[in-house]
Measured scan of single mutants.
Amino acid sequence: NITNLCPFDEVFNATRFASVYAWNRKRISNCVADYSVLYNFAPFFAFKCYGVSPTKLNDLCFTNVYADSFVIRGNEVSQIAPGQTGNIADYNYKLPDDFTGCVIAWNSNKLDSKVGGNYNYLYRLFRKSNLKPFERDISTEIYQAGNKPCNGVAGFNCYFPLRSYGFRPTYGVGHQPYRVVVLSFELLHAPATVCGPKKST
Rank of each mutant, 00 (worst) to 15 (best):
F47I: 01
P149I: 14
E141Y: 08
R73C: 07
T140W: 10
N87Q: 02
S29Q: 15
K26R: 11
S78P: 01
K148A: 04
N87P: 04
Y66F: 03
N147P: 02
T201L: 12
N130H: 14
L188D: 15
T170G: 10
N75C: 03
P161A: 06
V32H: 08
K132V: 14
S139R: 08
G155M: 02
T201V: 14
Y123V: 05
Y121C: 00
H175S: 14
L122D: 04
A145G: 06
L125V: 15
N1D: 03
S53H: 05
H175Y: 06
G196C: 03
Y119K: 04
T15R: 12
I138M: 14
K198T: 06
L125R: 03
P169D: 00
N4K: 08
F156G: 15
R16F: 04
G116R: 00
K198M: 04
E141M: 05
S184K: 02
F156E: 13
P197W: 13
V37D: 05
V194M: 12
V65I: 05
A18Y: 06
V153S: 11
K114V: 00
N75S: 01
N4H: 11
Y39N: 09
Y178T: 06
N109G: 02
Y91L: 10
R163S: 11
S200R: 07
P149R: 11
A42R: 04
L122G: 04
T201R: 14
F160P: 00
D98K: 02
K198R: 10
R16H: 12
P197G: 05
V103I: 13
N120C: 12
N109A: 10
R163L: 07
A145R: 11
L187S: 08
E10K: 14
G155N: 13
D97I: 12
A145T: 14
A192N: 01
F8L: 05
K48R: 01
V153Y: 11
V32Q: 08
Y119C: 13
P169E: 00
F134D: 03
G116Y: 00
A18E: 06
F45T: 10
V115W: 00
L122M: 14
P191S: 11
G166F: 04
T100N: 02
T63G: 02
V32M: 08
K198A: 04
L188T: 11
Y143F: 03
F44R: 02
V71T: 00
L122C: 14
Y39R: 01
I142A: 12
D98R: 02
S53Q: 04
T3E: 03
T201F: 03
K148H: 04
V180I: 00
G196H: 02
A46Y: 10
R27V: 10
V173C: 06
F44D: 00
R16N: 13
T85M: 08
F41R: 10
K132M: 14
L188C: 07
K56Q: 05
S53P: 01
I2D: 15
F156I: 08
V37R: 05
L5Y: 04
T140D: 13
P169T: 04
T170C: 03
D9G: 02
N40E: 15
G116N: 10
L122W: 01
G146R: 13
I142V: 09
F134T: 05
L5P: 05
I142P: 12
L125K: 13
Y121M: 06
V194N: 07
S129D: 11
G146D: 07
L122H: 06
Y159F: 05
Y21H: 03
K199Y: 05
F45G: 13
T3S: 04
L131I: 07
V153C: 14
S129P: 09
L188W: 11
A190D: 12
I138Y: 15
Y35M: 09
Y119R: 10
K128R: 08
F45C: 11
E76Q: 02
P169S: 01
Y123E: 00
T55C: 11
A192L: 11
Y121L: 01
E135G: 09
S19D: 01
E141I: 09
N151K: 12
F160Y: 15
D90S: 15
A14R: 00
R73M: 14
K110I: 11
N151M: 04
T201P: 10
R168Q: 12
N75F: 07
E10S: 13
S164F: 12
T201Y: 11
K132E: 01
S78E: 14
G196L: 02
T63S: 06
I2L: 02
P197N: 12
K199R: 14
G155P: 14
T140K: 05
I142H: 00
G83A: 00
N120T: 00
H189E: 15
V32T: 07
F44I: 10
G196N: 04
V194S: 03
T201N: 11
G74Q: 04
T63L: 03
F8W: 02
S184T: 12
A190N: 15
D98S: 12
V173P: 13
H189W: 08
E186T: 05
F160R: 08
Y121A: 00
Y91F: 06
F126L: 12
Y66N: 03
I138D: 15
V194H: 05
T85V: 08
N1K: 01
T55I: 08
G117N: 00
D90N: 08
Y178M: 04
G116E: 00
N130C: 08
L38I: 14
S129T: 06
Y123A: 03
G174A: 06
K114P: 00
I2W: 03
N40H: 03
R27F: 02
G155C: 15
T193Q: 00
L125W: 08
L188Y: 11
Y178V: 15
A22Q: 14
Y123S: 03
G174T: 09
L187P: 08
S164E: 06
P54N: 12
K132N: 15
T85E: 01
P197Y: 06
S78G: 07
V194T: 10
R163G: 10
F156V: 13
N151G: 11
N151V: 05
R16I: 12
V115A: 00
G174I: 01
A192Q: 15
I104W: 02
L5A: 09
A154I: 03
N120A: 15
K148C: 06
H189C: 13
G155R: 09
F185Y: 07
V173G: 10
A105I: 01
A190L: 08
T3N: 11
T140S: 12
A190M: 06
V153I: 14
Y39W: 11
G146T: 04
A192M: 01
A22C: 05
H175W: 15
N120W: 14
K128W: 12
F126T: 04
K128M: 12
T140V: 12
A105V: 09
E135T: 06
D90L: 02
L122R: 15
P191H: 05
